[in-house]
Amino acid sequence: MDPLHLKKLNAERRARRAAILVTDLGDGRDRMVREGDTVAGELGEAIVKAFRSGNSGSVVAEGRNFFLNVHLPQPRLVVIGAVHISQALAPMAQIAGYPLEIIDPRTAFATDDRFPDVTLFAEWPEDVLKAHPLDGYTALAALTHDPKIDDFALKAALDADCFYIGALGSRKTHAKRVERLMAMGAPSEGIEKIHAPIGLDIGSASPGEIAVAVLAEVIRAFRSRGTARLPKGQAA
């Protein structure tokens, strides 16, 4: 492996950006490809597919045998609101392999007693997201339906191009939210990506059931990255 390529690869991994190390198994030469870089031909097609699936493996392209080692950042979930749904969502998300953080400035809600074993910030999203920025491998679920708490985080998620953005609230609540986000300067094509009402339409009623619907929607968004958008779920 080329030492320079290892350094570049590790820099991408530290920064939570996706990269593939492409090794020609014939001559041992390698290169590092970032997500979004253009690579021509059959190899380029295989690289696009590998970024989407996250699966490493060998491919034959242009008559040569390449190994693609795919390094995707760990997808994670940031939840705004230390609410009842979040209490159910926290253990489920972690079991499913989506490490989770909860942010809620209301200290009566964000208590270790209500959220044991969870990364919890009893602070404003404005402050937490400065130190722990969102990125394309982060999902954001805004669950307080309090504009003072949710709106900044939703705008930040749009700016960071989070792979999933969901917001709790009825259609009426969401229509008002859309107006506020537009006033904050969010582009309408971004706002359209917000899943609201939040969660897949499985008829969820209880907080635990809504948590399942939200988590399923997050997983679907992650696994369909880069493909045509699936119809939005309608629930909660």
Binding site: R13, Q94, P99
Partner: peptide, 21 residues
Amino acid sequence: MQNTAHLDESRDPLIIAEGWM
């Protein structure tokens, strides 16, 4: 159950290889 969204630099083989180099 706590898992992390960031690299565990003390156990990550490629980070260790870079350090050795």
